Simulated scan of single mutants.
Amino acid sequence: MTFRRKTDQPRRDVAREITDLIVSKLEAGVLPWSRPWGLTGAGGRPLRHCGTPYTGINNLFLWAIGDAAGYSARTWMTYRQAEELGGQVRRGEHGSPSVYFSSFSKTDANRITGEETQRNIRFIRSYTVFNVEQIDGLPAYYYPVAAPAEPRIESVHRAAIDAFFGALPATVRHGGDQAFFSPIGDYIQMPRRGAFRSDDHYASTLGHEYIHYSGAPSRLNREFGRKFGDQAYAFEELVASIGQCLVCADLGLPGELHDNHASYIDHWLRILKSDASAIIKAASKAEQAFAWLKEQAGADTAAAEPEALAA
């Protein structure tokens, strides 16, 4: 009988696990990054045990996991962190991977000349985290307090909306019945503000177009697709859709999407099924765009820093 050493076990493909979950959500007609924050009683991004928000793909993945499991708590932590806080992960609970990027240098030698060159190779590592609703015995402030739903008062958000978008540099034109960013004219076109069901919907749509605006060659220089349906166009829409929801989360708004975004789901699925790293790249680009907007608005960008290299 041949025994396999532990080191011979197949390596866990975390990128594929994440992509498979996102694909399953999309196939079910759910956009996992469009979380209805106001319904949980604890809106906003997922948090580490110390209160720091997750970013990038961890933000999307833990949103999706939390929605699938029905968690209303935002906070996640490792088994050891739970123990250090006096908690205990309940028997039978399964953790979720949280990823981070690391790198190492490799020296390549030219077999003919002997010249050596250095290559920096990035790779994904993961550790396991648990939602606080899977853990007993933590300090009470980690657990969400159930609160009756309150009607959303638009005027509460109006000041935050105006302060954020009013500080951004784009030319925003109003009129017509379409919302888009014009790369040629370098402006954002929006329907009249009063045409939207609420200021929240207006701000959500404007956030989507501002993510597109951030990718222009003179700014973050993302590649735009040349026609509807091509790979680059669909990827850019995926970035804008995710980035839009980051803007909404930051302003405390609902993650409403354009009505026509359903038409992109098939394109997104084709991208994600063909490339397990696509959703990670899209989340990273969306995070970069959101951080750029925050910087332009003069806001605190601490929540949009790259993923930490340790739990």
Results as ranks from 00 to 15, higher is better:
residue 146 A to E: 13
residue 146 A to T: 14
residue 149 A to S: 11
residue 150 E to L: 13
residue 150 E to Y: 07
residue 150 E to R: 15
residue 151 P to F: 06
residue 151 P to Y: 09
residue 154 E to C: 05
residue 154 E to M: 07
residue 156 V to D: 11
residue 157 H to G: 11
residue 157 H to K: 12
residue 158 R to A: 13
residue 158 R to S: 10
residue 160 A to W: 04
residue 160 A to L: 08
residue 162 D to Y: 07
residue 162 D to H: 07
residue 163 A to E: 15
residue 163 A to I: 11
residue 164 F to E: 03
residue 164 F to L: 10
residue 166 G to W: 04
residue 167 A to Y: 05
residue 169 P to A: 11
residue 169 P to L: 09
residue 169 P to V: 12
residue 169 P to F: 09
residue 170 A to Q: 02
residue 170 A to K: 00
residue 171 T to W: 01
residue 172 V to A: 07
residue 173 R to S: 15
residue 173 R to G: 10
residue 174 H to D: 13
residue 175 G to R: 06
residue 175 G to M: 13
residue 175 G to T: 13
residue 178 Q to E: 15
residue 179 A to C: 14
residue 179 A to Q: 10
residue 180 F to K: 05
residue 180 F to D: 02
residue 182 S to N: 07
residue 183 P to I: 04
residue 183 P to D: 14
residue 184 I to H: 10
residue 184 I to K: 14
residue 185 G to A: 15
residue 185 G to K: 09
residue 186 D to R: 10
residue 186 D to Y: 06
residue 189 Q to W: 02
residue 190 M to N: 04
residue 191 P to L: 05
residue 191 P to M: 02
residue 193 R to C: 06
residue 194 G to R: 13
residue 194 G to Q: 15
residue 194 G to F: 03
residue 194 G to T: 13
residue 195 A to C: 14
residue 196 F to H: 09
residue 197 R to Q: 14
residue 198 S to W: 07
residue 198 S to C: 11
residue 199 D to R: 06
residue 200 D to W: 08
residue 201 H to C: 10
residue 201 H to W: 04
residue 201 H to D: 15
residue 201 H to E: 13
residue 201 H to Y: 09
residue 202 Y to S: 02
residue 202 Y to G: 00
residue 203 A to C: 09
residue 204 S to Y: 00
residue 206 L to A: 04
residue 206 L to H: 08
residue 206 L to T: 01
residue 206 L to K: 00
residue 207 G to Y: 05
residue 208 H to T: 01
residue 208 H to V: 05
residue 211 I to G: 04
residue 211 I to C: 03
residue 211 I to K: 00
residue 214 S to F: 04
residue 215 G to L: 05
residue 215 G to C: 04
residue 216 A to H: 11
residue 217 P to G: 11
residue 218 S to R: 12
residue 218 S to F: 00
residue 219 R to E: 06
residue 219 R to T: 03
residue 220 L to G: 05
residue 221 N to A: 15
residue 221 N to I: 04
residue 221 N to C: 12
residue 222 R to L: 11
residue 223 E to W: 06
residue 223 E to Y: 11
residue 225 G to Y: 01
residue 226 R to I: 11
residue 227 K to M: 09
residue 227 K to R: 10
residue 227 K to L: 07
residue 229 G to K: 10
residue 229 G to Y: 06
residue 229 G to N: 11
residue 229 G to P: 08
residue 230 D to R: 02
residue 231 Q to A: 12
residue 231 Q to D: 13
residue 231 Q to G: 10
residue 231 Q to E: 15
residue 232 A to R: 01
residue 232 A to G: 02
residue 234 A to Y: 02
residue 235 F to W: 07
residue 235 F to E: 02
residue 236 E to P: 04
residue 236 E to A: 12
residue 236 E to V: 05
residue 237 E to S: 05
residue 237 E to P: 05
residue 237 E to A: 04
residue 238 L to W: 08
residue 240 A to N: 01
residue 242 I to F: 01
residue 244 Q to N: 12
residue 244 Q to W: 02
residue 244 Q to D: 10
residue 245 C to Y: 02
residue 245 C to I: 01
residue 246 L to C: 02
residue 247 V to A: 09
residue 249 A to M: 07
residue 253 L to K: 03
residue 256 E to I: 01
residue 257 L to M: 14
residue 257 L to S: 06
residue 258 H to F: 13
residue 258 H to W: 04
residue 258 H to E: 13
residue 260 N to S: 15
residue 260 N to V: 04
residue 260 N to G: 12
residue 261 H to M: 14
residue 262 A to C: 11
residue 263 S to N: 10
residue 263 S to A: 15
residue 265 I to Y: 03
